[in-house]
Amino acid sequence: MDFKDYYSALGVARDASDDDIRKAYRKLARKYHPDVSKEADADAKMREINEARDVLQDKEKRAAYDQLADHVARGGSPDGGFRQPPPGWDEGFEFHRGPNAGPADHADFSEFFSSIFGNRGGMGGGTQRGPYRERGEDHHAAIEISLEDALHGAERQLSLRAQEIDEQGRPHLVNRTLDVKIPAGVRPGQYIRLAGQGLPGHGGEAAGDLYLEVRIAPHKLYRIEGHDLYMTLPVTPTEAALGAHVTVPTPAGAQVDVTIPKGARSGMKLRLKERGLPGKTPGHLYLLLEIALPPADSDAARAAYEALAKATPSFNPRQNLGG
């Protein structure tokens, strides 16, 4: 019987945190779950990573396993094989069924697992103090909203497909619809927490939470950076050179008058204070000036361009390029 390296099975280091182990398990489960995997050895790999997760996510099982691993390493067995754990190796430990193991799950685990923890995760014939209790795992999903929803807040219905475990311990997909309240001022990358909408708990413990990562759909006028909004504002050469007053739409729907300063350049940034995303510290709306040239599509327009060229003979926009 070979000694099983549960850390290698999950691809994590021995000092991996609980979060590292959860992430590694989820990544491998997405690859090898029999419902979705095309790998030839998916069933065997899924049993292997389930067994590794069962041990490494249980504090006492992991500590006892590490102690046994050290003992085996000191024995110097070249192939990692051994017949049975040494007497007294598990003194001071009490094991219980792992957090996500169904009634039949441990029956599919290896002979190595059974020799250490017993067929049902107990102490090789020992007893359990009581049923396993643990809060349900949190789940994560994404929700895309409009900029208007982010500005004003909204209520939306979200349809999700989630994997659940049936009474026989088999995974299956279920569809569910949730009502989501979107707070005003939410930003891309923030999370909306729906309490109790994650996986159910064990032994009467509370369910986990569902965290929705906010994504804001592209807008035809505005782009978002943190709390601030940016908009490109086209101006004519005359408005840029001589200065002007123009009307600009704001994200809240109002129209405001903006002063274009004399001698404005493309790329110049004007700020409209607190016209960005709302919040305890409201964001601003920044206007990026872009000089738009009128087309020379008439005799009058061409004559105007020719007159401008004659009036500014020394103007060379490429003078700083060198050469």
Rank of each mutant, 00 (worst) to 15 (best):
Y191P: 06
N119P: 01
R187T: 08
G124F: 10
K269S: 13
G323C: 08
A184R: 13
R129C: 06
R22M: 11
S37F: 04
Y222A: 00
L229P: 10
A44T: 14
L147I: 05
V12H: 10
P103A: 13
G136V: 07
G323S: 08
P294T: 02
R14K: 11
R271F: 09
D20G: 02
Q157C: 00
A207F: 04
P183H: 11
R83M: 14
A52E: 03
N100Q: 13
A304M: 05
A40G: 03
G283Q: 06
A9V: 15
E137T: 10
D166T: 03
S314T: 14
P34Y: 12
H96E: 13
L199V: 06
W89D: 04
M46V: 00
P200T: 11
R187L: 12
E94H: 12
V72L: 14
F93Q: 00
D19W: 11
D20P: 05
D41G: 04
L321G: 09
G102F: 10
L68P: 09
I182V: 15
P251S: 02
A240V: 07
G130W: 00
F113G: 05
D299T: 13
A292C: 01
I192V: 10
G80K: 06
R26D: 15
P131Y: 01
R176N: 01
D79N: 13
A150R: 10
V258K: 06
N175F: 10
Y305D: 12
L210I: 05
G75R: 10
R193D: 02
Q84K: 15
H284D: 15
L270E: 03
G124V: 12
M231H: 10
N320I: 12
V180R: 05
E51I: 07
L178V: 02
L308C: 06
D297K: 07
P171S: 05
L270Q: 06
D90R: 12
S314E: 13
S110Y: 03
Q128P: 05
Y7L: 08
F93I: 08
Y65W: 09
F117I: 04
S8H: 12
K220C: 08
G322N: 01
S77G: 15
E39Q: 13
H152N: 15
T247S: 11
P188W: 09
G76L: 11
V180M: 02
E137G: 15
S314N: 12
K273P: 07
L242H: 09
S314M: 10
I116S: 06
L321R: 04
R47H: 09
K27A: 14
N100K: 14
D257V: 14
E205P: 07
R97D: 04
G185M: 04
H71W: 15
H172D: 06
H245C: 01
E91Q: 15
P87D: 12
E94C: 07
A9N: 04
D41K: 11
P317L: 11
A309D: 13
P34G: 08
G102E: 03
L288H: 10
G185E: 00
A24T: 05
P99G: 01
K23C: 05
V248L: 02
S114F: 12
P87L: 08
G122M: 00
Q190S: 12
P171Y: 00
D179L: 11
K27C: 06
R318D: 15
L221N: 13
V12C: 10
